[in-house]
């Protein structure tokens, strides 16, 4: 890697980093949308068959867990890209 020309490599790296940040920004938006889905569920007042609490719990906690996993994964990627930037950047 060291014998490669430095600059194009860095540009590519910082480009990747920007896109990574974009992704990190989108995670809460995705979470908000997924957690807004229960707004669409029928309630007993609507008459039609409503959603069982156990299903609701499973859905909400699955979303939660997925967000945590995504967050952890992106946090790891961010950390790595930070380290690379510090290592090769200056």
């Amino acid at each position: 890697m060291s014998d490669r020309p430095n600059i194009p490599f860095l540009e590519r790296q910082s480009y990747r980093r920007r896109r990574l940040i974009d992704t990190v920004r989108m995670v809460p938006v995705v979470g908000a949308v997924l957690w807004a889905v229960p707004l669409l569920w029928p309630t007993p007042e609507d008459g039609a068959g409503s959603v069982a609490s156990s299903d609701a719990i499973i859905y909400i906690f699955l979303v939660w867990f997925a967000l945590v996993l995504l967050g952890a994964w992106f946090a790891f990627l961010m950390k790595r890209s930070d380290a690379q930037e510090e290592g090769g950047g200056r």
Partner: peptide, 15 residues
């Protein structure tokens, strides 16, 4: 889960 569904909070009832 069965107990939850059978209880008084067993249905999604959220404004």
């Amino acid at each position: 889960f069965e107990r939850i569904d059978a209880s008084k909070i067993g249905q999604w009832d959220m404004r």
